[in-house]
């Protein structure tokens, strides 16, 4: 599978990352290298091998359903760029 220039622009759009033409070309080359590696891996016969969903052979630990967190809004908001009325303010990005 080869990645096109348009694919790179589309991925950038989805991730809301601004790219200029030059950057996009660099990224296209880098991503294409990664795709080549994936192609090599995909050539390996994995028939009969159970898909691995996690690299470690352990299972999820669970916590009991108890509220353990107290309100620390002031501490968290002290390091936020901008807050008002208890809200975190972010640039308007959605129309």
């Amino acid at each position: 599978m080869t990645l096109s220039f348009d694919d790179v622009r589309r991925i950038a759009d989805l991730a809301y990352i601004e790219t200029n033409e030059e950057e996009a070309h660099v990224v296209l080359a880098q991503l294409s290298d990664i795709f080549n590696l994936i192609e090599q891996m995909q050539a390996v016969d994995t028939l009969g091998v159970e898909p691995l969903s996690h690299a470690q052979d352990v299972t999820q630990r669970l916590r009991d359903d108890i509220v353990t967190e107290s309100d620390q809004r002031e501490r968290f908001q002290a390091i936020a760029p901008q807050v008002e009325e208890g809200l975190y303010l972010v640039p308007k990005v959605i129309e």
């Binding site: 916590r63 359903d65 108890i66 967190e69 309100d71 809004r73 968290f76 009325e85 208890g86 809200l87």
Partner: peptide
């Protein structure tokens, strides 16, 4: 009582960001 991946409360109608 608590969130799916954290121990914060999910009680409805709390003051903004006091349960995050």
């Amino acid at each position: 009582q608590s969130k799916i991946f954290s121990g914060a409360s999910i009680a409805y109608g709390a003051i903004p960001n006091t349960q995050a």
